[in-house]
């Protein structure tokens, strides 16, 4: 049984069809990348999965529960976590409080009290290497640190599906490799399925994802294992441009 089933989902904004009749599945514990050029509908797809937007048509089943009409906080309780492209930590709260908030209200929220959540937070702070900044307000951190806090906060929610919006944008290759290793480690240890949205960092896609869903103008172009997707002529044409030899020919 898949973790998430997306069936014929469509989302329109006025006359614009941002997501057009898309179907796919996410399996337990897999890593998948949603890629596509700017405007392909990736962000809308993400917002549909975690309930920031509700679908106009179609259905979404998360572990046997029809979540199509669930608001985002109820999807979070079921185990859908998310990070934002531009990190959005709660600026006045400390790093520790930020991460604890994830634990308190996420999928494990109903069984976790404030003290337990704060203790849990320490574990994740160590994991992301921010122990020296534990009691500082998150608003004062560097962008990369904020990004790490956001990932830790999402992990503290104990999600079974983690949606990562451009987690590696703006990073240098060394940091990307580190982040890929970090995420793979999380996936293996905690059994979380990770769906990463990536616009143009193929290094991250190739390193992290087992499977790639390529979107183009709101529709699904291909949904294949990573290597095949990246060498698929359709993908290359709409997304990566024409192969170099065609220019030289």
């Amino acid at each position: 049984m898949p973790l998430l089933k997306v069936r014929n989902v469509t989302k329109r904004f006025g006359g614009l069809v941002a997501v057009d009749d898309i179907s796919f599945e996410i399996r337990h514990g897999e890593t998948m990348a949603i890629v596509g050029p700017n405007g392909a509908g990736k962000t809308t797809m993400f917002n549909l999965i975690n309930g920031v937007f509700l679908a106009d048509e179609g259905q979404m089943i998360f572990e046997d529960v029809d979540v199509t009409h669930f608001p985002s906080y109820r999807r979070a309780h079921l185990g859908i976590g998310r990070t934002f492209q531009i990190p959005r930590p709660f600026a006045s709260a400390t790093v520790r409080e930020n991460i604890a908030i994830g634990g308190m209200f996420g999928a494990a929220g109903s069984e976790v009290n404030v003290d337990e959540a704060l203790e849990m937070a320490d574990h994740y702070i160590e994991l992301i290497g921010l122990t020296p900044h534990r009691d500082k307000p998150a608003g004062g951190l560097t962008p990369i640190e904020k990004k790490m806090v956001e990932i830790a906060r999402a992990l503290a929610m104990k999600p079974r599906l983690l949606l990562m919006d451009e987690a590696m944008a703006g990073m240098n290759p060394t940091d990307i490799d580190k982040m890929v290793e970090f995420l793979k480690d999380i996936r293996d240890k905690e059994g979380i399925a990770i769906v990463a949205m990536v616009e143009h960092i193929m290094r991250a896609v190739a390193g992290l994802a087992e499977r790639v869903l390529v979107m183009h103008q709101g529709a699904k172009l291909v949904d294949e294992p990573t290597q095949e997707a990246l060498s698929d002529p359709k993908v290359i044409e709409v997304y990566l441009g024409k192969p170099a030899e065609e220019f030289h020919a």
């Binding site: 985002s72 906080y73 906060r153």
Partner: peptide, 19 residues
Amino acid sequence: YALTALREDEDAAKVMGIN
């Protein structure tokens, strides 16, 4: 904690599971 979160960023708070 819920109020702090929603004061800082209401949309992010919802995504964190806060009603």
